[in-house]
Amino acid sequence: MDARRDIPLVITFLVGVIAVMDYYTTFSAVKETFTVIKNWGVVLNAFALGLGAVNLFRVHGRRISERKRSDWPFSAWLLLMLVIFVLVGLGTGQFDASDQYQWIYNALYLPIGATMYASLCFYMSYGAYKILRARNLDSFLLFVTAIFVVLGNTPLFPALFPPFFHIREWIFKAVVGGAYRGIRIGVGIGAVVLGIRTLIGMETGYLGRR
């Protein structure tokens, strides 16, 4: 018996069976047990965030101490901001609900986050100009679809000519919906098979070994 392998497998099996039973049965004992497990799940996920912060210190602390890469000042800045955010959060005793924490967030992080996301618009515009060219039948179909989707998505065009909206709806409903449902059903069946294989111990990739 390999305890390092078998104990996690038994835990996985028990938790999986309880989760499945919770969905399909109404036994109060199962419901209560699964509530506790879900509670653990939330705690473990929160704990993983803390672990992520520790990992950030390890990775970027090493970069700062070695100074081999030219971008090490960014690592130093990252850790400095991490410490400031944590200190302000803990110092006020109200964590992210404190006015001070929110001020730092709104003054620093909010504009940067929004800018990063907004910059996508430029890449997508240039990408559309360079890539969407009707070179063959496949790309022609993509080109025509893209034109009608943009015409249907742009607020002005459907307001001027409502059929643009209905054409986009048809593309989404008939073309995209049909293809996507096929993909999702395939993914769903795959997930069920993976779940069964995991429950019975045939899938051990999550243990970190083949």
């Binding site: 419901k31 509670n39 939330v42 996920n45």
Partner: peptide
């Protein structure tokens, strides 16, 4: 209620038994 970690676990928890999964609201 503030941020609840766990993605779908959090969703299932809140819908299953809110009081078991969350003990305090945003301000504590």
């Amino acid at each position: 209620l503030g941020y609840i970690a766990g993605g779908q676990t959090a969703m299932a928890g809140v819908l299953g038994d809110l009081h078991a999964i969350v003990s305090t609201e945003y301000t504590g």
